[in-house]
């Protein structure tokens, strides 16, 4: 028998909390039991069976057929296995996941990969604000794993990030890598204002100059780190990019000197 498929019956009329639908939480449940699971999130009591047609049996491979911006918390706390969404997803995709993989065909809401620890999330469309960032009040963003956004990311990509790799390949909004503590952010495409604002450590790599660079980042010459080619090779091996996207001799800036921080901002002049 193949994976477990949840086919969305209609566009939900309220936000749905899909956190109960992960490989670990569904292990050992019958289709009938799964259909009775309550999905919070909105005003009305809604069960899985009210919103989805459930087929298949192996919860290690979950597919959400159809999608919606109102499907929140997909893959929360996921430990292993895979989830595929054939359309859009809502907020908090892969929140605090510790392993496994999630692929979303469409676009997603804010906080994708929020506080994720490990595993891999790939979004083929756009992502909302604070991808790989914390929720309000929290002091930690992403803590490990890989988050790939093929489309454009919103504001504050990788806010308060501590570890892991984030790639936004269709550009990003303002303040990518704000308050970053460590980890790596790669942006191909147009980046907004002030990358690395208030950052302490970590690396932000841009394939072209951002809209505005904070004057508290100091140019420290061309980037010749061994890490450069290693990273590019890793990105290509992982299928994240299919070309050496930084080109020759990108410039390196160190900051945010206001904090003071020792992060690095690597900017290619390839796409000026």
């Amino acid at each position: 028998m193949s994976g477990l498929t949840f086919t969305l019956l209609a566009e939900p009329t309220q936000r749905l909390d899909l956190s109960p639908l992960t490989p670990q939480k569904l292990a050992g449940l019958s289709a009938g039991e799964i259909e009775k699971i309550e999905l919070g999130g909105g005003g009305d009591q809604v069960k899985v069976g009210d919103c989805f047609k459930v087929e298949g049996s192996d919860p290690e491979t979950i597919v959400f057929e159809g999608g919606s911006k109102r499907l929140d918390w997909i893959g929360t706390d996921m430990e292993a296995g895979s989830i595929r969404v054939t359309g859009d997803a809502g907020a908090l995709l892969g929140r605090r996941m510790t392993g496994g993989s999630i692929v979303v065909k469409g676009s997603v809401g804010p906080y994708a990969g929020s506080q994720m620890q490990d595993g891999r999330v790939e979004i083929q469309g756009d992502a909302g604000d604070l991808a790989a960032g914390p929720m309000a009040g929290e002091l930690r963003g992403m803590c490990g794993g890989t988050l790939i956004i093929r489309g454009r990311a919103g504001e504050r990509l990788g806010d308060r990030m501590r570890r892991g790799l984030v790639a936004a390949l269709g550009g990003c909004g303002d303040y990518p890598g704000s308050r970053m503590i460590a980890g790596t952010i790669v942006v191909a495409g147009e980046a907004g204002r002030m990358p690395g604002y208030l950052m302490r450590r970590g690396s932000i790599l841009l394939d072209r100059p951002p809209q505005e660079l904070s004057p508290t980042f100091i140019e420290s010459g061309p980037w010749f780190s061994a890490f450069a080619s290693l990273l590019e090779r890793h990105l290509m091996q992982e299928g994240i990019v299919d070309y050496p996207f930084l080109g020759e001799g990108p410039m390196r800036y160190v900051g945010d000197n206001a904090v003071p921080g020792k992060g690095e901002l690597v900017i290619s002049s390839l796409k000026v």
Binding site: R193, M194, Y197, E212, L213, S214, P215, T216, F217, I218, E219, D256, N257, A258, P260
Partner: peptide, 20 residues
């Protein structure tokens, strides 16, 4: 420079750290 940049400059210069 935008106001965010200005704020960063203020803090950096007061601490006598390099700025662009």
């Amino acid at each position: 420079t935008s106001v965010s940049g200005a704020a960063a400059l203020l803090r950096s210069m007061h601490a006598v750290r390099r700025t662009a």
